[in-house]
Nucleic acid binder design. Sequence first.
DNA 1: ATTTAAACGAGACGGTACGTCACGTCTTTAG
DNA 2: CTAAAGACGTGACGTACCGTCTCGTTTAAAT
Lengths: 214, 214, 214, 214
Amino acid sequence: MSSRSPDAKAPDPARRSDRSRRAILDAALSLVSEVGYNKLTIEAIAARAGVGKQTIYRWWPSKAAVLLDASLALADDAKEEVEGDWTGIPDTGDLAADLKLVLRATVDQFNDEKYEAPMRALTAAGATDPELSARFTEQLLRPQLALYEERLRAAREAGGLAADVDLGLTVEMLVGPLTYRWLMGTAPLTHAFADELVDRVLGGVAGVSKVTEA
Amino acid sequence: MSSRSPDAKAPDPARRSDRSRRAILDAALSLVSEVGYNKLTIEAIAARAGVGKQTIYRWWPSKAAVLLDASLALADDAKEEVEGDWTGIPDTGDLAADLKLVLRATVDQFNDEKYEAPMRALTAAGATDPELSARFTEQLLRPQLALYEERLRAAREAGGLAADVDLGLTVEMLVGPLTYRWLMGTAPLTHAFADELVDRVLGGVAGVSKVTEA
Amino acid sequence: MSSRSPDAKAPDPARRSDRSRRAILDAALSLVSEVGYNKLTIEAIAARAGVGKQTIYRWWPSKAAVLLDASLALADDAKEEVEGDWTGIPDTGDLAADLKLVLRATVDQFNDEKYEAPMRALTAAGATDPELSARFTEQLLRPQLALYEERLRAAREAGGLAADVDLGLTVEMLVGPLTYRWLMGTAPLTHAFADELVDRVLGGVAGVSKVTEA
Amino acid sequence: MSSRSPDAKAPDPARRSDRSRRAILDAALSLVSEVGYNKLTIEAIAARAGVGKQTIYRWWPSKAAVLLDASLALADDAKEEVEGDWTGIPDTGDLAADLKLVLRATVDQFNDEKYEAPMRALTAAGATDPELSARFTEQLLRPQLALYEERLRAAREAGGLAADVDLGLTVEMLVGPLTYRWLMGTAPLTHAFADELVDRVLGGVAGVSKVTEA
DNA sequence: ATTTAAACGAGACGGTACGTCACGTCTTTAG
DNA sequence: CTAAAGACGTGACGTACCGTCTCGTTTAAAT
């Protein structure tokens, strides 16, 4: 199975202009922040990138796909910015503290214009385009979720979590409510919310009584 | 403050044709299921409803707004279909069981084509349109969330939940992961997932025993 | 048989904007003179006319068709400009003189930028588009040829031409070489050429004397 | 003065691939017959010829120029096909008969798909491109017209034509109406038409009374 | 025979225009 | 006298070719 229909003659990636590729991704990111996803047009991206429209259509099937790649590049940049030898969520021994640290960072990212606009765009596009949604989830979300799961697994092995706890579900219990509040705007997205959430999620799954006991 | 700009001559709601209104909402719902939100057009809605385009523009500011009203009508219909005197989530005394019942129904609704298409459409539209998102949340989501909260409050008063538990957070811990999984497609949306989720959420908040109120 | 394919829903001519129609024809004529037929674009016509492209596509199948209508309008205007009650080629009794008069006028027209540009455009378009060519011939050329024929018939009945002369052929012997020279540029297109041509054509067909009717 | 601007580094004709040249001309001829001049593209010619686009742009300035060369080659082929030692229009002593023979052949050529398509293409291109028109006339038309003129000159010297007859005009009186009818489609292009035309043209120019006398 | 420079097939590129679609407004017409 | 029908100006769509510009790869003249 290929990502392209078989009758379409695929362009040669070896001859691709990296200059154009970067310009397109940059233009897409800046434009989506400026005018929003609905008013984002391929023509505007091409114009700002100083590129022919065909160069976009040659390599991406839709403006959402451009944004996905742009977001992936953005995520890579962000990662490198923080540290060169990133190895996941820190493990200080205090699971709750570690999770709060990361979830607060996620809250900050959700509240940061730079990241919010493309994130909303991809969410909107993915909501009605299953194929894009799949790529979005696998390429952007899954790696992040895996980091949470890894940290939780370490905690479980260290005895800080019950042995039979469902790690995947736990991760979604952390990320789900956060995303929900961000998307639906049911209430402000704050650090306090992140902290509370971690406590509540861990409260029901901690091996030794830390939260519920008392 | 009105929902319309003051200089726009507001049409007289009293003279509104209910026949046209219904036809438009029905057309919007059927079309969004058939062709998807991205390919849904005002012109197609007008054509199928046998209505002039102006009749739509007169009463709604966008196709998303039409869909929101259509979804509200659909929700009302669904409610009436179940029972005439609906009073919220059942209270059998067993909180976990009651929540599982309702969350399973929500899972079913998410998996029902009829409801899924407009839901995804509104989510997509709301993700990049704050004003619409607000109306979506307040008019469609909030009432449902309130039902959960009401049931949780009853449980808390009955002693089945700790006195200091944050009800709003709890509701979002139930609805958030469900919505997240539905939207992102991280894993199949099943009854088992709903059950597990309820157990895990209540596990950390139950006043006495682990899950059931004994 | 209609001029449109049967599945295309025809627009309603009664609701057509005459303002737009005129603006389009004017814009087409001025542009074709300015930039030439090859660089004439529908977009430029629409822009100059202050009209949407669709308004052109709604009523004409091609830019050549627009030019044909524009030329027809131009011809009408030219006719009205000369005289309100035009009745064809003058009949002074001197056939050669009358023909020379008209042929000289044709030469002038061929040499007049205003008329030449659309004429060349239509000739070019017609050369490779039979359907357009047919309309061009029937609507623009034929009426003019008929005037020549009419004058020749009068001469024949007056005894100035042999009774068995083929009028259609005679007309083409007058117009053909003129058009040929204009199109191919084999030699300059002058009044002298027109005069000579008339003499030569009539020389072989005159009933009595060589050229003038004595 | 050269046919290329001085700053453009001219390619070396000595190294030119004759194989490619022929393939391009053949492809151009076959394509113009298949799809017509308007839909003829350089890209399609290159593709069918198995040639890079640049190889066409290196040697020709436009698709019309390619067609002109292709037509010249075609004309050469046609000439060689008929006879190796072609020396112009036959001179049997009977001018009218000789002209009719050749004009009938021209009629046949106009009606032959193989020749018609490129001829129409060049006529169309030349109608709006003076430079091409000049080359078209000089290289393709002029040699043919010269043959007529030569034959007429022989007739004049033999006393079959009046001494003061304008040979160039006479040639255009033969070729003009024929071309006009072919181009405008005013009437079918037949052998009878060619015959009549010759008779009428010679009728007015013959030294001894052949047609008009009686 | 080897070098080497140009022509070559291929096709990505920045562009322009195409012809279509839907937008939201405005006008006409038929019930 | 109200709406349906739909023409209008606008602007983006996705496609087709334009003519230019690299890329390796022949290929043929000059070493």
